[in-house]
Amino acid sequence: MRLPSFNYLEPITLTDALNLMEEYHGRAQPLAGGTELLPRMKLGLTHPTYLMSLKEIHELKGIKSNKNELYIGGMTSLREIFLSTLLQQKFLAISEAAGSVAAPPLRNMGTIAGNLCQDTRCFFYNQSYFWRRGLKPCFKAGGNVCYAVPGSKKCFSVYQGDLAPALIAFNAKVRIEKKGSSRIIPIEELFSGKGEKPIVIADDELLTQVIVPIPEGIYGSSYRKFRLRNALDYPLVSAAAFLAIDSEKKVKSVKVVLGAAGPAPVIVKEAEDILKGKKVEESAINEIAEAAYKRAQMVDNLGLPASYRKKMVRVFTKRAIENAFNSIK
């Protein structure tokens, strides 16, 4: 399959990039590692007229920190995030999530901004032109049918990004910039919850930085991903857990987030009520797993049946919490 034709822009400073975005009225699509965008272009799912590569903008690369916060530039590669000792020590779930994306060559190219801004996916949508041409476009393709849930009025495509759940578990934020302005929002607000258009970021905006507050006290975290093979596959379901405890081993705060369980990452809000102030015990973990199970929205549009993926929500929620607890040193 070949890439359709496009015009190529390559700014070398962030200012230039933001200027270009304004100049082209949002028609300059940012190209980070290209590992998600280019396959979609090859399938004919999107046809940007201008691709604006961010790869020469060095100010968007790298990991920095101060006492309170960790800063990851939008163009930092997943490989760097996976291998960072700082992340491995203090933000294990994020490093684990980065290390579980696709496969090493894709992690060398793929970036954190691209990972967060990736589109939702569906078995009936992410197919080549050759296969789709006989069918009427579905909601996601601008039409008004859904093949995954016939008769439904909306799209159920799945957000399968690995990093977002882990970052949300750490209460991370993102900096979004456009010419002349900059705003910071919690990552969960990046997602609309709608399969048709899952990412809320304007056409002239760039995601430039991820900001993670450094937690205080004793804590652990974990990201667990269910997939068919040990490499290459997107999550069929995943769970990130963050767990902070006091000196008596009672839970001070907890956050559990599911991936691939709907058009946006799913925060299991019940977790805090169930565990806060208590010791980490199996019954409580089971209760959270049950709450997670109820929150997961799954339909038959990925590699395995929804019923089976849903069962796995329990298993992986438990594993994430257990591993997070065990990672506390």
Partner: peptide
């Protein structure tokens, strides 16, 4: 089954 997207073969990690 249409392509490698839904036909799974083992990877080196398997």
């Amino acid at each position: 089954t249409k392509s490698l997207k839904d036909y799974y073969i083992p990877t080196s990690m398997d």
